[in-house]
Design a binder for these strands. Structure first.
Length: 279
DNA sequence: TCCCAGGCTCTCT
DNA sequence: AGAGAGCATGGG
């Protein structure tokens, strides 16, 4: 992706292929927040970042060229052409055209796998504002202090804790799931490294060894934590959507980009809830 | 106040 | 193997 280093930071010339609000608010991540001026702030790994749009450019404030190469290019998946994928999705199923045409620039972030696993464990039977609150308290209590915030605590760090230690998170029944996940990742019972490429069915089965990880959370972890674009998480919104407005669409027909199609279905349904109400 | 939230576990048929 | 209650907590 074409970019330049300026006094503001790194400026990526990306046009409409990266919409910050749609990307950060489409339910894939929980640590980006919109500021009053329309910019977004978040923490990725050990880095705090503020990003905003200026015309055809997305600006990553204060980023250096090595930050860009080492972190942001991969995190924002900037070497992938999402315009091509959008076209491909519509070719695979033309019923997706309205969602794809009305939502600009969703990108699928390359998030840390452990963070995604943990975040989506927390997401179950929960609402997004509260999920973000629990994740933030997890970081504040057990992450490392960095500029403007805290890192996401490692599995190793969490594995040393007890369920009671997690009380400040107010995560409810999910606390023991978080502990179980951390210990299974740390012990190697769940081999988190191989899941970028291993057989999908095997990955699902492995992830579901964790108490509190069912089909939906496993699928979200594969899509958002391991960038397995063929993963297709089915939650209550997707269920409603596929039973009403998007009736007839099935993930098997969406091939290698099912997960990105799912993003569009999910986000479009949440933006237009009246379209997916059961009749 | 009440309903419900990007589900899952546990129990009972 | 399939269905349903219960789950912690708090946002709207």
């Amino acid at each position: 992706m074409e970019y330049k280093k300026t006094e503001r930071g790194i400026e990526i010339k990306i046009g409409k292929c990266f919409d910050l609000k749609n990307t950060f608010d489409c339910g894939q991540c929980f640590r980006w927040n919109e500021n009053a001026d329309g910019s977004f702030s978040g923490i990725v790994g050990e880095k705090y970042a503020k990003v905003f749009r200026d015309g055809d450019f997305v600006v990553i404030q204060n980023a250096t060229e090595s930050d860009y190469k080492n972190i942001w290019e991969n995190y924002f998946d900037l070497e992938t052409c999402y315009d091509d994928i959008r076209k491909e999705i519509v070719l695979l199923d033309s019923r997706l055209e309205c969602a794809v045409e009305s939502i600009d620039g969703i990108r699928l972030l390359n998030q840390n796998a452990w963070e995604a696993l943990c975040s989506f464990i927390i997401s179950q039977n929960n609402n997004i504002p509260r999920i973000k609150g629990i994740v933030e308290r997890l970081c504040e209590n057990f992450g490392d202090k960095i500029e403007n915030g805290y890192t996401f605590p490692s599995a190793e760090r969490i594995a040393k804790l007890s369920v009671d230690d997690l009380a400040p998170l107010r995560a409810g029944f999910r606390a023991r799931y978080i502990i179980d996940a951390s210990r299974k990742v740390l012990s190697g019972e769940i081999d988190i490294e191989k899941m970028h490429t291993a057989d999908m069915e095997e990955c699902r089965k492995d992830l579901m060894k964790i108490t509190g990880v069912g089909a939906k959370v496993a699928e979200c972890t594969l899509l958002y934590g391991f960038h397995r674009l063929e993963a297709f998480p089915v939650d209550v919104w997707i269920k409603k959507a596929l039973a009403t407005f998007f009736n007839g669409i099935s993930p098997e027909n969406l091939g290698q980009y099912a997960g990105i199609a799912q993003q569009y279905i999910f986000h479009y349904s949440r933006l237009n809830p009246e379209l997916v109400q059961a009749k």
